[in-house]
């Protein structure tokens, strides 16, 4: 199927041959793509243009720059939402590939560009689509960018919260910690004790933002499986994915054990009960 056939709102004018090898802007000094990279780039380009969100998010551009005006990333990186939209709208496979190596990760997803855009584009959204593609295709650059997220991804996939207070360590996120304001001498505060001193029962844990019930985390994982998130993650990091499956298997066992343990008590409380299919 020709890539051109996927282009929304546009009459196919290129021949299939041209479409398969769209004119790429080869910048001076840029390493040419290997044959494999080029194949991936073209596959990604095709999927990008065929994504249902593309037509909805990329409408057109007057190049007014109001998106970049409020963009936090534009102040610190070689990045602008205006450029990203232009790449999304008129770029070819190679240009898209280039933008997906680094630029897409500069975006802060603050949505200021969307709120400002007088054409009604969803720029933050189209950047998310590019990011999803880079994850699904396991791009090397994406692996590098996301390497520091193993811990928070594990938390997120298994209990559905992003951070935990035990990530605050003397050598890591020290400045997030309690008593940081008072200086280093106070840093001996025991995190377990400080969590106990929070007057909310489910927050008195250090391993997750709050205690998430086992049933809830099993349901969450079910969502990830059914919605294809697990397959997506496998493309990025197969080892992590296997580990997550193991963790969930343990939680499932824990759930079964608890069910046996509590059976009579609950039957007394609520009468006969059905099976949880999670």
């Amino acid at each position: 199927m020709s890539v051109v056939a996927h282009l929304p709102h546009r009459t196919p004018t290129l021949t299939d041959t041209e479409a398969a090898h769209p004119p790429a802007l080869e910048l001076t000094g840029r390493r040419p793509l290997t044959a494999e990279e080029r194949r991936t780039a073209e596959t990604i380009f095709g999927e990008f243009r065929a994504d249902g969100r593309y037509r909805e998010y990329v409408l057109g551009c007057l190049n007014c720059g109001e998106c970049t005006t409020g963009c936090p990333a534009a102040r610190f990186y070689d990045f602008s939402p205006r450029e990203m939209l232009q790449i999304a709208a008129v770029g070819d496979a190679t240009t898209l590939w280039d933008a997906m190596q680094e630029k897409i990760w500069a975006c802060c997803q603050c949505y200021t560009c969307n709120m400002r855009c007088r054409f009604g584009n969803d720029i933050a959204g189209i950047i998310s689509v590019m990011r999803e593609l880079s994850v699904r295709h396991g791009l090397e650059s994406t692996r590098r960018v996301l390497a520091p997220f193993n811990r928070s991804l594990t938390l997120l996939m298994t209990v559905g919260t992003q951070v935990a207070s035990d990530m605050i360590q003397p050598d890591f996120f020290r400045d997030w910690g309690p008593f940081a304001a008072a200086g280093e001498k106070s840093w001996d505060a025991d995190p377990h004790l400080l969590r106990q001193a929070i007057p909310i029962d489910v927050l008195q844990t250090t391993t997750s933002s709050w205690e998430v019930s086992v049933q809830t985390s099993l349901e969450l994982f079910r969502i990830y499986e059914e919605a294809g998130v697990l397959d997506m993650l496998r493309g990025l990091d197969p080892d992590l994915t296997e580990m997550l499956i193991d963790i969930i298997e343990e939680r499932r066992e824990e759930f079964e054990e608890a069910r046996t343990r509590y059976h009579s008590q609950l039957a007394a409380m609520h009468g006969p009960v059905a099976t949880f299919s999670g």
């Binding site: 999803e132 996301l146 997220f149 997120l156 992003q162 049933q215 997506m232 990025l236």
Partner: peptide
């Protein structure tokens, strides 16, 4: 405890969803 987060911090950060 029968609540997860929205998981959107992760989505907006890593797009692994």
């Amino acid at each position: 405890p029968h609540q997860t987060s929205c998981t959107a911090w992760n989505y907006h950060g890593t797009a692994t969803s």
